[in-house]
Write a protein that binds this DNA or RNA. Structure first.
Lengths: 140, 140
DNA sequence: TATTGTTATACTCTATAACTATA
DNA sequence: TATAGTTATAGAGTATAACAATA
């Protein structure tokens, strides 16, 4: 292998992706903070708004240890945004589910995020389609 | 404003960007960990490998409070990867600079990252160019 | 007076290991 | 015995406020 040095365009794309990542992260944390939530809390609340999940599944989605989820859900529960329910099928399992207020907060969170993520507005439909296809291929 | 609901393609692109962000983050942390560094430490070391910086500037680059940089640089300094130097022009300022070993680590880190980021290899030069231009417009 | 870096403090996220209650 | 969730613990990143040295 004479060299794995990337060509100039690849280097540019990698840097741009770094920019996208930084921007995405900054905006996500900012929107979460505007709802008095940390990034991790916002992610969990958003997950649970789609469907209630066992603690273990949350950890898998977040790619972290199950012990961490206990604290995150604790804090959401203290805030009245999430509640733990027993799983009728397996008494070892606790299902974390959003409360009514949690669902409302998740909705407002998602609206803010849609808005914050709208740097795409400057692209035409054709361009967005092209971007979608390229990103898909890249992640394949 | 009747609705700010995004069109389906935009939703798809936003989700794909979320995937890219997650993947980038995972790989960055993984590569950093393989060098016994946290993500924040790797980012600072990478910054300093480009040029020595005052503590204040590092905080600005990381978008965090200056007090946090003290600890991160402390840990890099304990590891012998970074050193603090006085700024001859302003005795209040401390310049953080990589040691020889720090530069070597930064080089190996960057090589690993180039390799890890190579999902781009599946795209042709034309496609990479198109992706670059779309990302640029998106970030403009 | 204003600025640079640090310290002190408190909170959150993180992983590891040990514990409990179920299965 | 294996699994789900928790607790205990320790390390790291984060923000805020107060401080010393220097400008």
């Amino acid at each position: 292998m004479p060299s794995r040095r990337a060509d100039p365009v690849t280097v540019e794309v990698v840097e741009l992706i770094g920019d996208v990542v930084a921007r995405y992260h900054t905006e996500y944390e900012h929107v979460a903070a505007s709802h008095q939530l940390t990034g991790a809390q916002a992610r969990v609340l958003n997950l649970l708004a789609m469907e209630p999940l066992p603690m273990r599944r949350i950890a898998q989605k977040l790619r972290c240890e199950p012990s961490n989820v206990t604290g995150i859900v604790d804090r959401l529960e203290t805030r009245g945004l999430v509640e733990r329910r027993p799983d009728p099928a397996d008494r070892r399992v606790k299902l974390a589910a959003p409360t009514e207020e949690g669902l409302r907060t998740a909705d407002r969170l998602r609206e803010s995020l849609d808005f914050a993520r709208e740097p795409l507005a400057g692209l035409s439909t054709q361009e967005r389609t092209a971007l979608r296809d390229l990103l898909k291929r890249m992640l394949a």
